[in-house]
């Protein structure tokens, strides 16, 4: 709700809406509605305030009362007496996309525009000249460039230290995702809830699998595999809201390494090296931001100054005390959901 943040994500959503056409590749973007459940009058007031601000800024948002919600999604657990569902906050233009198609679509469109994509090519070092980075050493040779951008979620700190730039306000944590066996059409929306220590999202893919997930594994890690306590936590969260999933089998789960930042917001900024640019720290929210992340990063590199919307998304904001999207969790990266 801070100035800049809302405009950034609304722009991202608008880019998503035309992404399949722009890339000439069907990313299967489906605006099926993002349904965020609330479980107490306090939560309803809080989310009403946020969604009213969204509406005042021209973004779609609405509240569903219990009657509407029951009609739209009849098979949620409406009998939980500890955390009863009272309704939902809904953004109807939100939804999901097929992530593989997004990656392939971008790759093909970039290739058509003349971008070289080098696979299996690890960065091993940097050659500096007059304070700038002159070239990148890789496992497949040296690459020279006038301007260098880092966009390497999860391993940003490793590259940053390789360039002898010291520490970053980032820790690497892993976040798991889960996919079940395919079932007949069961859920038409993306359903999210967070109450009583739980944090859970779920939707159904076009193949029929239930796709869901929850919190980080809670300890710092670069290991790209999830641990079992979180599998149990997420399964419990699923059962609390969707008891009908009780007999469904889990096909696979995996973990990705996240840049978790000290305030839960990202970086699109210049760095102490004048020809190096940083795009990092996407926490839980990188996928929805992908098109805008690329757009504003390209804008920064081309024009040498950040767009108004991302002008505070820099490394100096901690020293200056600039708030971006804080929820008062304090300087602990794992707490920024």
């Amino acid at each position: 709700m801070m100035p800049g943040n809302h405009e950034f994500y609304e722009h991202s959503l608008k880019l998503w809406e035309n992404l399949s056409h722009e890339l000439n590749y069907n990313v299967m973007f489906s605006q099926r509605a993002h349904v965020s459940l609330f479980h107490s009058p306090g939560a309803k007031d809080s989310v009403s305030r946020i969604y009213n601000i969204m509406r005042l800024h021209g973004t779609d948002a609405e509240l569903w009362d219990l009657k509407t919600l029951k009609k739209k999604i009849p098979h949620l657990n409406y009998h939980n007496s500890r955390f009863p569902i009272l309704g939902a906050a809904v953004q109807k233009r939100a939804g999901n996309a097929r992530h593989d198609a997004v990656a392939w679509g971008y790759a093909r469109a970039a290739d058509t525009l003349g971008v070289d994509i080098l696979q299996n090519c690890e960065v091993t070092g940097f050659t500096r000249k007059n304070g700038n980075i002159e070239s990148i050493q890789t496992s497949r040779g040296i690459i020279k460039g006038k301007k260098i951008g880092f966009a390497v979620a999860g391993n940003t700190s490793v590259l940053w230290q390789m360039a002898e730039l010291g520490n970053l306000p980032i820790e690497s944590h892993k976040l798991q995702a889960f996919v079940s066996e395919a079932v007949k059409p069961l859920l038409d929306q993306v359903v999210v809830y967070g109450v009583g220590g739980a944090h859970f999202y779920i939707s159904q893919s076009d193949k029929g699998s239930m796709v869901f997930g929850g919190d980080l594994d809670w300890y710092k890690s670069y290991a790209q595999r999830g641990n079992l306590p979180m599998v149990q936590d997420v399964a419990e969260a699923a059962m609390a809201i969707f008891p009908s999933l009780g007999r469904i089998r889990l096909l696979r789960h995996w973990a990705g390494v996240m840049d978790m930042t000290m305030d839960g917001s990202f970086f699109i900024c210049k760095t102490p090296i004048s020809n190096l640019y940083l795009n990092a720290g996407w926490n839980y929210g990188g996928f929805k931001a992908s098109p805008a992340s690329g757009w504003y990063f390209a804008d920064l590199i081309a024009n040498e100054s950040p767009h108004n919307y991302v002008q505070n998304h820099n490394l100096e904001r901690f020293e200056k005390g600039i708030n971006i999207d804080e929820r008062g969790a304090g300087p602990d990266p794992k707490l920024h959901g």
């Binding site: 391993n155 700190s157 490793v158 230290q161 010291g166 520490n167 970053l168 306000p169 980032i170 820790e171 690497s172 710092k220 670069y222 000290m262 901690f318 020293e319 300087p331 990266p333």
Partner: peptide
């Protein structure tokens, strides 16, 4: 103080 509170080695 900013360095101590907000910046991490993030060791791999």
């Amino acid at each position: 103080w900013t360095e101590a509170i907000f910046f991490r080695k993030n060791i791999k």
